[in-house]
Amino acid sequence: MLKDYLGIGIFLAVGLVMPLIILAVSALLQKISIRYAKTEGPAKYETYECGIETKGDTWVQFKTSYFLYALVFVVFDVEAIFLFPWAVTFQELGTPAFIKMFIFITILVVGFWHAWKEGALEWK
């Protein structure tokens, strides 16, 4: 059981190290290849916005529509966490569990309907 998660840990660690190795190898090979084809120019390190020079600040306050979706998402994501253990034991728990989950989802659906009605799901 705990050994399983050690296996997962190995996967995560290698997942972090592997791209670093790839980038290091690439950096070494670049040293060779760039010797033959290194270019320089005034526009080389400019931000690429289809050829037009970039204007103003990029890091600005952003549309709130994204934030509204994120709020609704959090509610349903937590619900999903509750639903999984229920779904696993569904066949053993019997009718009361089914009715309770039905009530639970109904409350959420009412909230969802309210968010819908209030226009939280409209893209403005």
């Binding site: 190898v25 690439s26 950096a27 670049q30 290849s33 290194k38 390190y45 931000t47 990029t58």
Partner: peptide, 20 residues
């Protein structure tokens, strides 16, 4: 893999490097 890896100016260095 042999292509030059350009870092454009003005990027947030560490976040930009760590994303991939």
């Amino acid at each position: 893999i042999t292509k030059e890896d350009i870092r454009p100016k003005g990027v947030d260095r560490w976040v930009w490097f760590l994303a991939p």
